[in-house]
Design a protein around this nucleic acid. Structure first.
Length: 402
DNA sequence: TCTGGGGTCCTAGGACCC
DNA sequence: TCTGGGGTCCTAGGACCC
């Protein structure tokens, strides 16, 4: 029949778990079933990371300040995130997907793209595979998911969005233009709030209208790259492949203070703690960083970044902190009210075999490796440098309410 | 309404090199 | 004399995604 060499017209699947964090919390505590559940920062500066559909019915949405979500939905159960549990369920989710094809590209803990173009002989057409995945995920995890089936990644993603919750939407090639034309530009991958405003000023509100704008005009208002990709997407063009693995480009940690801070000692103590976490991640994942970035968000929400590239890449907290501290001290002004600090390691290079030679006889490397071993046995922060001893034990994002 | 934390990518200017 | 152009790296800021 020649069927085995024929790639299906719509080989791309996007699979998205429904209200994932909230759904896991309901699995952990079945008495939450049917109730509005909010997962996110529980402190006074937290935002909603995930909301059950019962809460969404009251107008709660992702990324909404938790204070506002509580006002909209006073009876909601509010929980801090439990990433260990989410990661565990996410791994089982990925196992289900990998049982159909190795070409799985995870986008987050709760969603992934699949290219099932080569799986037809074993498992049938893409729509049939999507249906089987939905059944398996429900059976294996006890969580519902939504699936989009389409010729390209971004249409598959839009299709799974349209399928939510607990559904499957198939967009055949011939229906792509009609499917896209009606959508608001904001639905396109890469068109956020600012881009939507810019386009609105041109009178462009739908994807259909965007497709009709001349590339030259688009480039003038959006810049070269955004103009090209958005124009392509508006015409249904998306050449991106499903890519199973890509090396990370940066590792970072940041923390918003419960109240703005001006005390240099308090701020630098946090910078040290963040530097230690970043360096530990570097070692854990086998990278060294060439560049350290310090991020500071002021009380008025404006953000400063300062970066420095090292003479040689490092994975040691002592190095990361030394640079971050110098960058902090180099910021303009004094007694700033600071809302957030962050430490990022970028310019990552793989810590290959040559690194082992570099460490021979280096005391700091040995000290931090010893700390890694202690923390493996006794948990994070079991071995603290003196400057951190005054610090309270850590809890999840957003301190518990008083 | 008053905005988390972890990331990616793009732009633009200056340094530096050929 | 008084000024080109391309490539790459570094830095700062910002849009965007989940």
């Amino acid at each position: 029949m020649g069927k085995r060499s024929t790639r299906p017209a719509e080989p791309i699947l996007h699979v998205d778990l429904d209200a994932f964090y909230a759904a896991v919390e309901v699995l952990k505590d079945p008495s939450l079933h049917g109730k509005p559940v909010l997962v996110g920062g529980t402190g006074n500066r937290g935002v909603v990371a995930s909301a059950s559909y019962e809460a969404r019915a009251q107008g709660v949405a992702s990324a909404m300040p938790m204070v506002r979500a509580r006002r909209l939905c006073p009876q909601a159960v509010v929980l801090p995130p439990d990433f260990e549990a989410y990661r565990a369920h996410s791994n089982r989710f990925r196992e289900v997907l990998l049982s159909y094809t190795p070409v799985v590209e995870p986008i987050a803990l709760d969603e992934a793209f699949l290219d099932v173009g080569g799986a037809a002989l074993l498992f049938g057409e893409p729509v049939a595979i999507g249906a089987r995945i939905r059944r398996d995920v429900r059976a294996e995890l006890g969580i519902t998911c939504s699936v989009g089936v389409a010729p390209t990644k971004f249409v598959a993603k839009l299709a799974s969005e349209a399928a939510k919750p607990d559904g499957l939407v198939h967009v055949p090639v011939g229906e792509v233009p009609g499917f896209l034309a009606r959508l608001p530009v904001r639905a396109l991958w890469g068109a956020g709030e600012r881009t939507a405003e810019t386009l609105d000023r041109l009178g462009v509100r739908t994807v259909g209208e965007l497709a009709a704008v001349s590339p030259a005009i688009l480039e003038r208002v959006l810049g070269e790259a955004a103009a090209r990709t958005l124009s392509e997407l508006a015409h249904g063009i998306d050449p991106r492949d499903v890519v199973p693995y890509e090396a990370p480009k940066s590792i970072s940690h940041e923390e918003t203070f419960e109240a703005d801070q001006s005390e240099e000692e308090t701020i630098l103590r946090e910078v040290l703690a963040l530097s230690r976490r970043v360096a530990a991640r570097l070692r854990e994942d086998g990278y060294r960083a060439r560049t350290v970035v310090l991020k500071v968000r002021l009380a008025n929400f404006s953000t400063l970044t300062r970066s420095r590239t090292l003479p040689a890449p490092t994975d040691l907290a002592a190095d990361v902190y030394r640079v971050a501290e110098a960058l902090y001290r180099g910021l303009p002004g004094t007694r700033r009210r600071i809302r957030l600090v962050g430490v990022q390691a970028t310019g990552l290079v793989s810590a290959g075999a040559e690194q082992l030679a570099l460490y021979r006889g280096e005391r700091w490397g040995e000290v931090e490796r010893a700390v890694d071993r202690i923390e493996q046995r006794f948990g994070r922060d079991a071995a603290l440098p003196a400057a951190l001893l005054a610090r309270r034990p850590r809890h999840g994002p957003g301190a518990p309410r008083a």
